[in-house]
Design a protein around this nucleic acid. Sequence first.
DNA 1: CCGAGGATTATCT
DNA 2: GATAATCCTCGGA
Length: 237
Amino acid sequence: MAQSRSQAQPEPLPRSFYARACLTVARELLGCVLARRLPDGMILRGRIVETEAYVGEEDKACHARAGRTARTDPLYGPPGLAYVYITYGMHYMLNAVAEPEGRPAAVLIRAAEPLEGMEWMVDARGAKAKTVSAREAASRHVAAGPARLTQAFGIDLRLNRADLRGPTIWIEPGEPVRDTEVGTSARIGCQTAAPPWDLIPWRFYVIGNVHVTPGTPRGPTTKAGKTRSGTKQRARP
DNA sequence: CCGAGGATTATCT
DNA sequence: GATAATCCTCGGA
């Protein structure tokens, strides 16, 4: 067991990291490393390349718009916990609770670049894929999208309210991402939220990174708020 | 490459 | 009863 112990493990991000403004946390989580210890002891790691901020009961795209309920309760809790929920009846979404306790807010972890445990991730996702081409697609976009990411990291409802400082899931500091590498856009899948929450640019991503969700903006943001490349125009709200 | 349509169920109205 | 912080497959260019 000494063979894989050559490097010291970075300390997980402290609770104070998450206790700040949600937008700051979303921005600064880019470049950080999501880590997961599976029941059998295997470690998975991926560099976070895409996030979204959901802040307060006034944010009509945030689940807290419905107030404090059994489901949204974790959003109001201490920062630095995981908020995991199901959407579309079948997909798990991983969030990091942010802002001081009592203020409902979270950062959706939308995509990661695999660093460690790739084989397991591809397997976890390929298991559902029937065809060969589906398997290949699974390995190309292992964690490129919020539901793909939870599949790749073996995350489900059991991790709701888990402490993001370990031992089963945690986030480590990473190589910082410069401002010039950070793009912003409207949050994905929020087109039915009341204005301005449908278009407010609270999504953050590493510009040009291949592991950002396909079919979503991943180019630089222009002054007009439009993107120059890697985008799909979605008109008609 | 792109767009259309289906899957599938917890949660809230 | 309607909706949803999504993804996959399939058909066409």
